[in-house]
Amino acid sequence: MPEITLVDAVNMGLMHEMAADPDVVVLGEDIGLNGGVFRATDGLQKKFGHQRVLDTPLAESLIAGMSIGMAAEGLKPVAEIQFLGFVYSAIDQIINHAARLRNRTRGRLSCPMVLRVPFGGGIHAPEHHSESTEAIFAHIPGIRVVIPSSPLRAYGLLLSAIRDPDPVIFLEPKRIYRLVKQRVEDDGEALPLDVCFVLREGSDVTLVSWGAMIHETMMAAEQLQQAGVSAEVIDVATIKPLDINTILESVDKTGRCVIIHEAPRTCGVAAEIAAQLAEKGLLSLFAPIERVTGYDTIMPLFNLEQQYMPDVNSIMAAAKRTLEDT
């Protein structure tokens, strides 16, 4: 079994589900012959034909809207929006329709669709290509927001997302599309949605993150270990709905929590996690909750993107602050 990258794992998941379920269709801009701008859909059209692997006109609202129509008719569309910065013209469809179709018809119609969207900074991309605005979607009832952080989880979570009977926004951290390789067996085994994954057990501090920042978080945990601090690392993976229990259990054990995300700080998902910890786990805490996040600024062009994004040092520093005086 060869080692594959995260983007290869997405491709493998799509291949698997298209072969297993004739209702699965893939659509988006440049996803056919071109295989998608990141090659996530490479080879799909050749294998499954241009009707099931559909190059759409350049129209994001249409892509989301027609996926809703397809889903209501019993297909399982997996649509790609090229970059998160271009999803906003589809947001009416996502919020007003995809998220609501089951509820507003009292279950008569439903919307089993997946919207795959590469997101996040760190690849020296042009303007509007690097934002992390996952919190916008996490605020919306009726959808799931799923973010893999490794090839294994990309494969397993994508299978779950496609099989899920409700709409899933599947955000792919493009900075780590090709950063690490893992052995991933194409066995059709899905990973559960709506649960956090404990990636590393520890006893002194809980580090909570998702997506590409898991990479820096794990490195910080390694370095903390060398400094004699035992860090537990949690990959939230499904940020909506949020599995707070796994985080609470961990914080109950460690008494300290650092939440890391690339997105701007205000109303980021860390704010929700911190609020729930304050409501349900305050008495377990030995120190204030720390947030390590992007700034409340416009994502800078790439000259300054490294200065914008949290790094290993800032995670380490925050973890150490939680350990001071306690």
């Binding site: 009707q51 027609m66 129509g69 397809m70 209501a72 008719e73 297909l75 009416d92 007003n96």
Partner: peptide, 27 residues
């Protein structure tokens, strides 16, 4: 009436749903 879409209050958004429905029929 199991297949018809519900009343659509946001303006024009049902037009792309119709494209998806018709695409499924064609497929």
């Amino acid at each position: 009436q199991k297949h018809d879409f519900p009343i659509n209050v946001p303006i024009a958004s049902q037009t792309s749903h119709a494209v998806g429905v018709a695409y499924a029929m064609q497929l």
